[in-house]
């Protein structure tokens, strides 16, 4: 079993997101430890990008703060190296195509394999363009995660059949950010996904409460939460880790109900 599959092996998975370096990498490290301690099954680590076009204002803010504190791709690899000495929870990177391209795909994915990154999510790399990085990802045993959106009609089966690691199902139209209600007919999308692949599928975008997480995990194999955690970081800065831990604990209980 690969490491990503193990995250989904004990019931529904809770997948928290954090932007590395917001407000600094020491805080990120402490938050990740808290996430693990409180039951995170897989952790999504954002590498900041200057112009995150798939993000709403909350995560845009995290990207700005992280870059302002001098966070770079190289420093994030160092941070993951240190964390891997104590943490075995699966971890995936979320960033934008240019961050990988500028670092050099070969160099980036070699480093991912060395430090123990299990997957890569690139929101601006759709199915049509995945060959840009897929061969290098495979060579280094890093799963290139596929996204499916509410507007993916006619494409779901094709994407699902070739998906690796897990499928990231985008709950709603628009950018990341918390939503009071998720209205997309996700169960019919899930049905097509299930018919075409056996890999797990987690739902993200707009989830901020244990009730929403429970509902989304009920429809799929897990819930991904980003903006709600970033709001804690924006409010508490370097004091965030304990609040992040409490939040993860509460959300994890939600998905396991």
């Amino acid at each position: 079993m690969n490491k990503i599959a193990s995250a989904f092996a004990n019931g529904k998975a809770f997948i928290p997101f954090i932007t590395c370096g917001d407000p600094d990498l020491e805080t990120t490290k402490a938050c990740i430890r808290e996430m693990v301690r409180n039951g995170a099954d897989l952790i999504e680590l954002g590498i900041p990008f200057s112009d995150p076009t798939a993000e709403g204002p909350v995560i845009q803010g995290a990207n700005i703060r992280a870059l302002a504190s001098g966070t770079t791709t190289s420093k994030i690899f160092e941070m993951v190296t240190e964390l891997r000495r104590e943490i075995s929870t699966p971890m995936v990177f979320m960033t934008y195509a240019n961050v990988v391209f500028a670092y050099g795909a070969e160099r980036f994915l070699t480093a991912c394999e060395q430090v123990g990154i299990d997957g890569l999510i690139l929101p601006d790399l759709p199915y049509e363009e995945k060959d840009e990085f897929l061969p290098v990802c495979r060579e280094h045993h890093v799963a290139l995660i596929s996204l499916i959106a509410p507007t993916s009609a006619g494409r779901i089966a094709t994407i699902a059949r070739e998906a690796e690691g897990f499928i990231y199902l985008v709950s709603s139209l628009g950018v990341t950010g918390t939503r009071s209600e998720i209205t997309t007919d996700l169960s019919s999308i899930m049905k097509v996904i299930r018919e075409n692949t056996s890999i797990p599928c987690a739902i993200g975008f707009g989830i901020s409460t244990p009730e929403q997480a429970a509902k989304m995990a009920g429809l799929s194999d897990g819930a991904i939460v980003g903006s709600a955690i970033i709001k804690i970081l924006a409010q508490y800065g370097s004091e965030s880790p304990k609040y992040v831990g409490e939040f993860v604990k509460k959300m994890k209980m939600g998905v396991r109900c």
Partner: peptide, 19 residues
């Protein structure tokens, strides 16, 4: 892929916009 001028161009956008 589609829309290439040499190595340039392409469709590097979120899945939401592909259709």
């Amino acid at each position: 892929t589609k829309g290439r001028f040499g190595i340039y161009g392409g469709q590097y956008i979120p899945e939401t916009l592909m259709n």
